[in-house]
């Protein structure tokens, strides 16, 4: 009997069916990626298909059909109903990949700002709950710290700017901001 053991399924498929087999397998995985994400959420919450069907007010076979389908066949309604039944909210983000990176970054920054504003609104409305307000404060500090660190990481990958005299303003601002965030985040 064949006793060959493989560390990955990909290695096994490569050995058995060649690169065509691996490509076909990976293409399939891409085609069902989103559905698998939904199923992962369901499994993390330890909810069976039957239980989810009950919450969705549909038959278990409908849940089966959704999970056995392809991402391209999903309707927005299916996604919303499935996600809501798991206690998840759905946010749709449209990203125009034809735009330059700078425009897309600005778009995402504005989106983040909107979300932070809505969090601040929650804190204002829940002013009588100091625990929640403090948690939101803490979260703001973490976001600021993490964003500055990631921005700094990315910035340091840039080739050196040509400067005459003093350091570029942004480098000074980054070190200052990182220090501020370390204080806020703790």
């Amino acid at each position: 009997m064949n006793t060959k053991r493989y560390d990955t399924v990909e290695a096994m498929v490569l050995d058995t069916l060649g690169t065509d087999g691996v490509d076909a397998m990976n293409q399939h995985s891409e085609a069902v990626k989103f559905i698998r994400g939904l199923v992962s959420f369901r499994n993390e919450k330890k909810i069976t298909q039957r239980q989810l069907a009950k919450t969705m007010a549909c038959s278990p076979s409908k849940v089966c059909r959704i999970e056995a389908g392809r991402d391209a066949d999903l309707t927005l309604g299916d996604i919303e109903t499935y996600a809501c039944a798991l206690g998840l909210s759905v946010h749709l983000a449209l990203d125009d990949e034809s735009l330059p990176a700078a425009a897309r970054i600005k778009h995402h920054v504005f989106l983040i700002k909107d979300l932070l504003d809505s969090l601040a609104e929650i804190a204002t409305k829940q002013n009588d709950d100091p625990g929640l307000v403090n948690k939101i404060h803490q979260f703001y500090g973490e976001v600021l710290f993490n964003f500055s660190m990631r921005f700094g990481d990315s910035y340091h990958k840039l080739p050196p700017a040509i400067t005459v005299g003093t350091k570029p303003a942004i480098a000074t601002a980054l070190s200052k901001r990182a220090t501020e965030c370390l204080v806020v985040g703790t």
Partner: peptide
């Protein structure tokens, strides 16, 4: 197509 699918599921 079916083999690609079962292999993908096995990988998952």
């Amino acid at each position: 197509r079916e083999v690609a699918s079962v292999m993908s599921n096995l990988q998952y």
